[in-house]
Write a protein that binds this DNA or RNA. Sequence first.
DNA 1: TATATACTTAGACAATCGTCTAAATATTGC
DNA 2: GCAATATTTAGACGATTGTCTAAGTATATA
Lengths: 95, 95
Amino acid sequence: MKQQEVFRALADPTRRAILKRLQKGALSAGGIGALFDITGASLSHHFGVLKAADLVRTERRGRSIVYSLNTSVMEDLTRMVLDLIPATHRHGEDQ
Amino acid sequence: MKQQEVFRALADPTRRAILKRLQKGALSAGGIGALFDITGASLSHHFGVLKAADLVRTERRGRSIVYSLNTSVMEDLTRMVLDLIPATHRHGEDQ
DNA sequence: TATATACTTAGACAATCGTCTAAATATTGC
DNA sequence: GCAATATTTAGACGATTGTCTAAGTATATA
């Protein structure tokens, strides 16, 4: 699990917005692109960062490439963050 | 709550290590400095980023400045991260 | 097979980042 | 008040980042 890549990926607001959108379901690169006012090339760069962190998975579907959340790494992320928080202040966690 | 500053602060491994160390209790700038192989000036820069994100609090104690975790923002952090994760995959959370 | 569509890669650019050294500021104890 | 200690600020540096345009690659369809 690439902790550094994960935290780095989360540091950018566009990438966080992409992840939030993918919560609602998988979406093609173009579909995601329609939601942001940046070029496809820039988006593709963000996809690369998210993939390097293993936060998203891709699947080609015809002409499109469909992005979806990699939920197992999302769970790792929860643990990484909880790990930064003193046990006594965790939310919805005991011990 | 400064979401962008918080995620940015977490993107650096030294800053995450500082936060982890502060879980064990408050520590002076110098005490923290003894744990890392970078100059005090660089450390001070990291403290600035952590303070901008409201992740740490400071208190002058004599000649030293003592750093401690700001646990309330730590809790906000938990929520911010959980917010990125689909409800069905949250850890220790219902709904 | 040619053309259109959907993405990615390459290369450039300004802005931000993490680090450093050197100088400045604040506090303590003599 | 002065010297020592503790930390921050200023300014510089190379490295990385997010963005862009232009060119490349892959798939589908006429």
